[in-house]
Amino acid sequence: MTDLELELKSVEYRKKILTAIKKAQAGHTGGSLSCVDILNVLYNRILRVSPETFTSPVRDRYIQSKGHSVEALYVLLADKGFIPESNLETLCRYHSDLVGHPTRKVPGIEQNTGALGHGLSVSVGIALAGKIDKRAYRVFTLLGDGELAEGSNWEACLAAAHFGLDNLTAIVDRNGLQITGLTDDVCRTDPLEDKFSAFGWTVKTVDGHNIRQLSETLRKVPFEIGKPNLLIANTTKGKGISFMEGDRSWHHGFPNDSQYERAIKELDDAYSLLTAGEGRD
């Protein structure tokens, strides 16, 4: 698939995310929209996993530590054939397996998450097992920038470097926001590059909405032999919908009818722009 095809997919994914959240009248809109381009690249270009290979011991693993952005994950899993598209309609419904955070009841999901600050430690465990068993799989995990305030991340960070886990890649969805407001105001984590470097990781920073940059960088892992990889993805919370971008109230806000219509219209316009060969950077 070309970059353009993936960019078009991102637009479709955003529509599906909003449609599922609208229907459920629940969900984490802002963070799903900020990470969906990352998931797009991971599932369509990087991860060596499919519904057929999901039980293979050598599959690549993806652990979504920022579990609240589960709608983006469900949409990707549906697109990749792990779950039927129609399941997206059951998000958060009575008796549904599609809970508002990832669970292993859903095919394609490796780990139950939703309490922040767990994914990195679990990923260290999986990566460590890969080293012990001399298996070539890689482990990818997605963290929120607000999530990094959890101390467990820094314990895992030490461990990953200590064990030389170059098969582990953590991606930070650095959208600068959390529930209360700016991450800089709530609990500053910058300079993030310096912190992770000091902990013994190799750090790269990209535009987290740029398919080409994300792809080129993620294809390069391991960045250095013997060191864990950190990819800082600079993103915009609520990306793609003008009135959601950078607005903290969309962390777990869900659209009403008119907001939904406006959002879909904006995405349709973005789609047309892309197919017209415009809107490329």
Binding site: S96, V99, G100, T113, G114, A115
Partner: peptide, 9 residues
């Protein structure tokens, strides 16, 4: 109280 957000919550 968090209902469908699941057992983590």
């Amino acid at each position: 109280s968090y209902g469908p957000l699941g057992s983590t919550h």
